[in-house]
């Protein structure tokens, strides 16, 4: 039962943040803010990806060739830079990731 209350609380918090600025559709932002918003996807997603590659368990640095997250992440960056194709990046990255895990006996 407690878990359901937590789920509802999380749902309310998440929704309010997503709706926050949709609630005032006619509000205009100053130019500095509008400029900053151009960098939101790059900054936020990079801040999730980089630690995900270097600290895959969220607690320990893994700067080694045995870290499939790091190696497959670098390959994915290469695929994305060359192909600029989302499906090739996700599909190719996952394939390389699981091949590496399998080859390193981590599966």
């Amino acid at each position: 039962m407690t878990y359901w209350w937590l789920i509802l609380g999380m749902a309310a918090i998440t929704f309010l943040m997503r709706y926050s600025l949709f609630a005032w559709p006619n509000l205009r932002f100053p130019p500095l803010v509008r400029q900053g918003l151009h960098y939101v996807p790059t900054a936020v997603l990079t801040a999730i990806v980089v630690p995900g590659m270097l600290l895959p368990d969220g607690a320990h640095w893994q700067l080694s060739l045995g870290n499939a997250y790091l190696l497959a992440g670098i390959v994915s960056i290469g695929i994305a830079a060359i192909s600029r194709n989302l499906l090739a990046t996700i599909g190719g990255g996952l394939l390389v990731f699981f091949l590496l895990r399998w080859a390193m006996g981590q599966m």
Partner: peptide, 30 residues
Amino acid sequence: GLEFAMLATFIGIVVPLLRNQPQIAAALVA
């Protein structure tokens, strides 16, 4: 390790955005 799927997705979104100096700097600093 299925959570790698999220990393690959975000890489596929971000890398094509890195087409000028300010975007690259935003990624490096973040």
